[in-house]
Nucleic acid binder design. Sequence first.
DNA 1: ACTTATATGAGAATAATTCTTATTTAAGAA
DNA 2: TTCTTAAATAAGAATTATTCTCATATAAGT
Lengths: 140, 140
Amino acid sequence: MTTEEIRNKLTDRGLKVTPQRMAILEAIYNLKNHPTAENIIDYIKKMYPNIATGTVYKVLGVLVENRLIKKVTTEKDAMRYDGVMESHHHIYCQETELIKDYFDEELDELLQKYFEKKSLPGFKIEDIILQIKGTFQKQY
Amino acid sequence: MTTEEIRNKLTDRGLKVTPQRMAILEAIYNLKNHPTAENIIDYIKKMYPNIATGTVYKVLGVLVENRLIKKVTTEKDAMRYDGVMESHHHIYCQETELIKDYFDEELDELLQKYFEKKSLPGFKIEDIILQIKGTFQKQY
DNA sequence: ACTTATATGAGAATAATTCTTATTTAAGAA
DNA sequence: TTCTTAAATAAGAATTATTCTCATATAAGT
């Protein structure tokens, strides 16, 4: 993801391009494993020590509203964020904080067909995310 | 769910039976829509005004550890809890706080077969929860 | 360069949850 | 039944995550 591409994501949504917004998006793309706001703040402060905590939370909210990033739900108190907007699922390791992305077009088609057939009365499905919970095997 | 059944859930796990634990489990079973800790506290205080906030959080943690209840992940800051331990999924209304349970054995079998065939290398799946996101249609 | 609506920084405020410690209590033993 | 003790609770302080307020700064169109 180049600086120019990040800039375009903002302008395409009619958002002003600010150094803070650029830095926050760049942080999310570079920090793997679905960073928390705190992870993002720590990362940005290395290059940009004056960024305000409140600004990061504000910008994250704006980015979610504008569908440039997504929230990732967890059983912990701190929200985590995801810069990958293509349809995908999440593999949660029960023993660590690791959340891996899981892309599977075959599965997505299967689910789409399944819920076309068996529609939920009175409900319009917009997105289905699998939370795949378990543990990674130890490596020997 | 009778008082006796709730009591047995605790003793079966080797947990001491206390009025607080009984009240919290009863609250979760009676309060529909996956209550927050605050919902539970408000409910219990009607009958039992002296219960301490910290106790409720402590007990909720114990109940989750002992697999008597589950946490429900959301995009909001407050955690929500679920007393239904049978395998099921969640329908999230994007416009309200409503989270509906979705039971579907056919779907569960489909998923189980799918992930037997296509296993995730190095990962042992323990549970798969669908987060079905969308909106309920307005009633006329 | 000028203007103005919007974004940011700083820090206070709030909300959700956890921690600490003295006291109480459940449940097994005597 | 009473005794014992490890575990649970109440009360409130402390911590953590997030939001809010408002004065100042700035992006982007004129």
